[in-house]
Design a protein around this nucleic acid. Structure first.
Ligand SMILES: [Mn+2]
Ligand SMILES: [Mn+2]
Ligand SMILES: [Zn+2]
Ligand SMILES: [Zn+2]
Lengths: 139, 139
DNA sequence: AATTATATTAAAACCATTCTAAACTGTTGA
DNA sequence: TCAACAGTTTAGAATGGTTTTAATATAATT
């Protein structure tokens, strides 16, 4: 359980003004038992359900992008149709259930260390992410 | 060097009629020294340059999707803005150069074997892909 | 050659995302 | 305290990659 005061601090520390809308988005994103994956559409629906208010799409996009830039959220590339975001910002990997269109976290320990034995001159590795696609198992 | 006759066979074997447009797309995609990565926009530009003909966007999309379904092409999820395709359909991984927006192949041997130590009941692993994001190295 | 199935095309529609510009709210310092 | 400024929200328009449409054309089958 995180308090509103803490969200306000979190926002202030990242140079974001603590507005009513941003605090509500914080509550929906960060005041949960577990981390989760979502699309913007998912998020808008959750906000409408939890609060009985609407936050404009532009504000949702702006805030999500601000949080992403600040490292409060990660974007997970799955397919080219829409963006998937993750409130789990630790280094981890994913299962992607193709039929359910759902992401499932894979811890570092579930995958084991990955040692990239190749490098590109003048470039450094920023992230290493494994995506494991899952299909229905028909024996 | 692959001949037109071979492309026609390839298309026929996959239940696709060998039309002038599909053969041209085959030439652009598969009659190359090396495999490569492309967006639909890239492809349209290459076609316009190599052939002096235009193939409608709808046909390009339809054909690329047919090839993808047949396993002649792979789609690589990078970001949610547009689709990236790959003429290298072997199991392999990628560097993604963020500033250049370019994909670079990583062979299995460059990454090493990946053993997923977790499973989801009723689901089987369809693919395991590693995406290594690269940043400019400012010392 | 006639018939049927499939493909191509230009244009419209779709839809996630971004932009716009006017109204609003938070912050600051006189 | 409050005016002035900076930052934010909003509805709606615009954008741009992708898909759909439906008319026309081409390929395959008879
Ligand atoms: Mn983003
Ligand atoms: Mn596709
Ligand atoms: Zn995750
Ligand atoms: Zn590749």
């Amino acid at each position: 359980m995180t308090t509103t005061v803490e969200f306000i601090e979190k926002l202030r520390n990242s140079g974001l003004r603590p507005t009513k809308q941003r605090i509500k988005i914080c509550e929906v994103l960060f005041n949960k038992e577990t981390t989760f994956h979502f699309t913007i559409n998912d998020l808008v629906k959750i906000i409408e359900k939890e609060a009985n208010e609407k936050i404009s799409l532009a504000t949702v996009y702006n805030t999500i992008h601000a949080f992403e830039k600040k490292g409060y959220l990660k974007e997970i590339p799955i397919d080219a149709n829409q963006s998937y975001f993750d409130t789990n910002v630790t280094d981890h990997h994913h299962f992607y259930d193709i039929s359910e269109k759902k992401l499932i976290d894979l811890d570092q320990v579930d995958v084991g260390p990955i040692n990239i034995k190749k490098s590109v001159p003048g470039k450094k590795i920023k992230s290493v992410e494994v995506l494991v696609k899952l299909d229905t198992d028909n024996q």
